[in-house]
């Protein structure tokens, strides 16, 4: 990997990997459900191994840019999350068949509460008119108004209005379901 300067460059390409590892850790911490907290290290390791494997396969390639490697790490994580989800479903079926220790740690009450709210949010979003739904969805995903506007291909003022009206409708719908956000 040819890198010129910054944390990705310097004497050792490992500095770039360290940065990627740190960023992956942060992304996982901000994205993963609390119940997967103890799996973060495993997920991180799997993604890093995939990146290192890719690098090792063709060490001379200069085009392994951060953007490319971060994307590889991201897709690996999605695969792993899917695998974990599938394993959990199997484990739940086994629990239904007979008593067994739960495999997923975390706070089950909190997870149940979060799932109930999240399900209600999804239901309510489906009841909004489409443009509001899209704008509010991106807002709930943490996008700023300019980011949401750019992603949706609309102007910022319109997007901002859609978010405000959409949030208001979402709150009303959630209230009807007994959820006061």
């Amino acid at each position: 990997m040819e890198l010129r300067h910054g944390p990705w460059a310097g004497a050792s390409p490992d500095a770039g990997l360290e940065t990627l590892r740190r960023d992956l850790g942060r992304a996982l911490a901000s994205v993963c459900p609390a119940s997967l907290a103890d799996r973060r290290e495993d997920l991180l390791q799997v993604a890093m191994m995939r990146v290192v494997e890719l690098r090792g396969r063709d060490p001379g390639r200069a085009e392994l840019t951060p953007a490319y490697l971060y994307r590889v790490a991201y897709t690996t994580l999605i695969d792993e999350l899917r695998r974990l989800g599938a394993r959990k479903e199997v484990a739940l079926e086994e629990v239904e068949e007979g008593p067994q220790q739960p495999v997923a740690p975390g706070d089950p009450e909190r997870a149940a509460g979060a799932s109930q709210i999240a399900r209600a949010v999804r239901d309510c979003l489906q009841g909004l008119v489409q443009d509001r739904r899209l704008a509010v969805t991106l807002h709930l995903q943490g996008h700023t108004v300019p980011e949401a506007a750019e992603l949706l291909g609309w102007d910022a003022k319109r997007t901002e209005n859609l978010i405000y009206r959409g949030l208001s409708a979402l709150r009303a719908c959630l209230s009807l379901k007994g959820i006061e956000p």
Partner: peptide, 27 residues
């Protein structure tokens, strides 16, 4: 909007693409 797995993927892609852009700028 409708699917929790897609929403998780979106958040992860958002976080990772922003981190990638910063790493790219640094490099």
């Amino acid at each position: 909007a409708a699917d929790p797995a897609w929403a998780r993927a979106w958040r992860l892609a958002k976080a990772m693409s922003q981190a990638a852009a910063e790493a790219e700028r640094a490099s």
